[in-house]
């Protein structure tokens, strides 16, 4: 709508509200078609390129593919959701009706398998496709939702839900919200509000519940109606050692470090040992291991300066050697559960 056609009514009032607060516009040339399903010929051609370009969805999916190692099942699901929303958008354009799909999800898997990262990307994808107006991710746990005394829970939960509107509400370890064994637990109230919001305000926010698979499954069986309101149950498998090595390489690249070929081997050895130890947390463990490696690397350089008064080359600053890795406690026999 041009500004000359009528005087400005102020910010927000001049724009066509359906575009900002709806799911894409009906194209003007189809605006007065009464029943598009019956009235439009089946061989009518629809602009595809525009819709794909407008949403820049290819870039987002390509980045997802590039930056997340493995997780094929997860990527496939994200792609499916993206495809559905894109087709919805094109259908909307020629006036076909489409109900917004239910996009609440549950992410199950062990720690460090990329649930939070994928949730962030999901927000971005849904925003680019016009499903979410903002696409930000509000990450909460039981403490943020459940109150401590009677009458505290509902306002607290409502504040959080409001903050997440237009984006993704990511509930980590969702099963802690509700404790079956304690019927006076205030978590019940939170669950009820969540259920109501997930049903009635589907267009305003997407809820993603994350946690260990067995506990989430038990949570869903304890709270009838929750599982059926979640459209996508996505499982995050543990990474194989090759995939972990690939993750490490990606992380090193991003931080502008590199392994020597021997270090590469040593790190594979390190991963194999670390994976057998308790409390192994997939990607997160790799990140922590790299942080410690950088520390040892820095320490080694420091020692070199102290002892020989040597000059350092750029190569020294970016290269992590096998010795840095072998200094890890994981190689200590006393700490290896198989030999001790």
């Amino acid at each position: 709508m041009s500004a000359d056609a009528r005087p400005s009514l102020g910010p927000g009032l001049d724009e066509r509200v359906e575009d900002r607060f709806g799911r894409g516009l009906v194209d003007e040339s189809f605006a007065d078609v009464g029943d598009p399903l019956a009235d439009l010929p089946d061989d009518l051609l629809v602009e595809v390129a525009d819709a794909v370009r407008d949403t820049a969805i290819r870039d987002v999916l390509a980045r997802l593919d590039e930056e997340l190692v493995a997780l094929h099942e997860v990527k496939r699901r994200v792609r499916e959701v993206a495809a559905l929303l894109l087709v919805d958008r094109m259908r909307r354009k020629i006036g076909l009706d489409s109900e917004p799909p239910t996009l609440h999800m549950s992410f199950t898997g062990n720690p460090g398998t990329g649930k939070t990262t994928v949730a962030q990307r999901m927000g971005e994808v849904l925003h680019k496709l016009g499903y979410l107006r903002k696409g930000h991710v509000v990450s909460v746990s039981r403490d943020d939702l459940v109150g401590q005394y009677v009458g505290h829970t509902a306002p607290k939960t409502r504040e959080v839900l409001k903050r997440a509107m237009g984006g993704v509400l990511f509930i980590d370890e969702a099963y802690h919200i509700y404790r079956v064994d304690n019927e006076r637990d205030y978590g019940q109230e939170t669950v009820e509000m969540l259920l109501q919001m997930m049903e009635n305000d589907r267009a305003d926010l997407v809820v993603i519940m994350a946690g260990y698979k067995d506990k989430i499954d038990r949570f869903f069986s304890d709270v009838p109606g929750l599982s059926s309101r979640i459209g996508h149950h996505i499982d995050f498998p543990d990474y194989s050692s090759d995939e972990l090595a690939q993750i490490a390489r990606l992380m090193l690249d991003r931080q502008q470090y590199r392994f020597t070929p021997e270090a590469e081997e040593a790190f594979a050895d390190y991963l194999a040992r670390r994976m057998r130890q308790p409390r192994f947390a997939n990607g997160r463990s790799v990140r922590n291991a790299l942080d410690r490696l950088r520390m040892r690397h820095a320490n080694r350089l420091w020692d070199a300066i102290d002892h020989d008064d040597a000059t350092l080359s750029k190569g020294d600053l970016v290269t992590i050697t096998a010795d840095d890795i072998h200094a890890s406690r994981v190689f200590d026999f006393a700490h290896d559960p198989e030999t001790s």
């Binding site: 409001k162 903050r163 509107m165 237009g166």
Partner: peptide, 17 residues
């Protein structure tokens, strides 16, 4: 009505209130 709404991202929450 309720509290002032700081840290909102989306107006839907206000319409809701």
């Amino acid at each position: 009505w309720g509290l002032p709404m700081f840290d909102l991202q989306d107006a839907a929450a206000v319409v809701h209130e």
